[in-house]
Computed example of a mutant assay.
Amino acid sequence: MKKVYLVADNVYSPLGATTTQNFEHLVNGVSGVRQHDDKALSEDPFFASLFEKVYFQIDERFTKFEHLLIASLTETLHGVDKKISDKKTVLIISSTKGNISLLETEESSPELDERIALHTSAKKIAKYFGFVNEPIIVSHACISGLVAMITGMRLIQSGQYDHVVIAGADVISKFVLSGFQSFQAVSPGLCKPFDADRDGINLGEGAATVILSTDKPTGEAIELVSGAISNDANHISGPSRTGEELYYAINKAMDAAGLKPEDIDFISAHGTATVYNDEMEAKAVTLAGLQHVPLNSLKGFYGHTLGASGLIEAIVSAQSLKQNTIIPTKGFSKQGGANPVNVCSQLISTPLNSCLKIASGFGGCNAAIILTKSQQDIS
């Protein structure tokens, strides 16, 4: 089986325009989440991690969503020779909402229907950068980013491509925010993942890009060694009550990687800070025998960035492996739930070799991937 390496990446968020800037802020406990009073998004004040309007240049060819993708891709591709115009390179775009906000500002028409379609954005981005292959779209609720990485890994392992460029983004609009508010799922303050007093999510905007390749990069290398997907078949918005289905994805990913619970050094959880999601994740982690493994959620720093969240959190996890540093769970203070897990409440510096990244989303979807340091890099 071909090895799949993470050879370049970018996190583009309100915390910074590069992965390095983002990781430095995380280490220093800086969050992008703050209170906003924007009547264009909500009648009531709300907490979220949003870009300032000055982040976006004026170019009517592209929407804010597409500008985010372009910004993150530009940072990632700078100085990286991955033969963008090569037939063995493909672009994957990950998003849950894309240009859905255009429904709020444009008149209904066939032209709008075409403009709002994700494949339209993907083709515009592919043309902008010079990709020659038809881009691939992954839109699978909140696991979109991880599904895109698993798809890229499989495309490489099957021999169809040597390089896969994966970019994901989402922006927060009134449509998106009001949807979560209608579920009464939005916290009135800063979110508290896995905490006994958790009361809902904060949303966030962001973009991320990662390049997967068969080429081992110079220096310390991170491998995407396995991934698996499952579905609860339980409810359109409510997660499984047993955690068995996420556990299935975790177990499949660990089996494919040849790893046992004692081999996992930390877990990057979805950790939305809703009552049911966090409890379901805790149950799944416990079923996998991983309840004692250090676990974190980054939602207190980024909010929930939807289709970008899996990519952002996977890239941060890869950086954690390189830096031998586990980021704490901002907002967590006391254990809650019937299945206590080892939530990181402070920065941890320790030798790290492997990470389990998990995510879940509406429709009952679940995903898990395993990231490790390349075995040649482990002394």
Results as ranks from 00 to 15, higher is better:
Ala228Pro: 04
Asp38Ala: 10
Val275Phe: 13
Gly361Val: 02
Thr286Leu: 01
Ile370Cys: 07
Ile370Arg: 07
Leu118Tyr: 12
Leu347Gln: 06
Lys299Thr: 11
Asp197Trp: 00
Ala253Tyr: 00
Gln346Lys: 13
Ser13Phe: 00
Ile378Val: 14
Phe62Ile: 02
Lys83Asn: 12
Ser182Lys: 13
Ser182Ile: 00
Arg241Ser: 14
Ser320Cys: 14
Arg34Asn: 12
Gly300Glu: 04
Val171Ser: 10
Phe129Glu: 05
Asn324Trp: 08
Gln57Ser: 13
Lys216Arg: 15
Asn10Phe: 10
Lys124Ile: 06
Glu279Val: 05
Thr286Cys: 08
Ile92Glu: 06
Ala233Ser: 11
Ala17Trp: 00
Ser121Asn: 10
Ser345Asn: 14
Gly189Ala: 13
Thr76Gly: 06
Gly16Gln: 04
Thr325His: 07
Gln323Trp: 00
Val80Asn: 04
Ser374Val: 07
Pro45Tyr: 10
Lys252Glu: 15
Ser108Gln: 15
Thr372Gln: 15
Phe129Cys: 09
Thr19Glu: 04
Leu212Arg: 09
Asp195Phe: 03
Thr274Ala: 08
Gln21Pro: 00
Ile378Phe: 01
Ala256Val: 01
Leu259Ser: 11
Glu106Gln: 14
Ala228Gly: 01
Lys334Tyr: 05
His78Leu: 13
Thr89Pro: 04
Thr372Trp: 01
Gly189Asn: 13
Lys192His: 12
His140Glu: 15
Glu66Tyr: 04
Pro14Phe: 02
Gly204Trp: 06
Lys127Met: 13
Ala221Val: 07
His78Ala: 15
Gln323Ile: 00
Phe301Gly: 08
Thr209Pro: 05
Val27Phe: 04
Ala249Phe: 10
Tyr302Met: 03
Val341Leu: 08
Tyr302Asn: 03
Thr89Gln: 05
Leu306Gln: 11
Leu118Met: 14
Ser309Asn: 12
His36Leu: 09
Gln57Arg: 11
Leu146Cys: 09
Pro45Gly: 02
Val176Lys: 06
Leu212Gly: 01
Ala308Asp: 02
Ser13Val: 05
Val138Tyr: 09
Glu75Thr: 08
Ser144Ala: 13
Gly331Glu: 06
Leu103Gly: 05
Arg115Val: 05
Gly159Glu: 04
Ala359Gly: 08
Leu295Pro: 01
Asp195Cys: 09
Phe180Ala: 05
Lys322Val: 12
Thr214Ser: 12
Val30Pro: 10
Ser354Phe: 05
Phe175Cys: 01
Ile267Trp: 09
Ser297Asp: 01
Gln319Cys: 08
Gln160Arg: 13
Phe46Gly: 10
Arg154Glu: 14
Asp265Ala: 03
Ser144Tyr: 10
Arg61Asn: 12
Lys260Asn: 15
Gly307Cys: 05
Lys123Trp: 12
Gln319His: 11
Ser108Thr: 14
Gln335Gly: 00
Val7Ile: 15
Leu68Asn: 04
Phe47Cys: 15
Asp86Thr: 02
Ser297Tyr: 02
Glu111Cys: 08
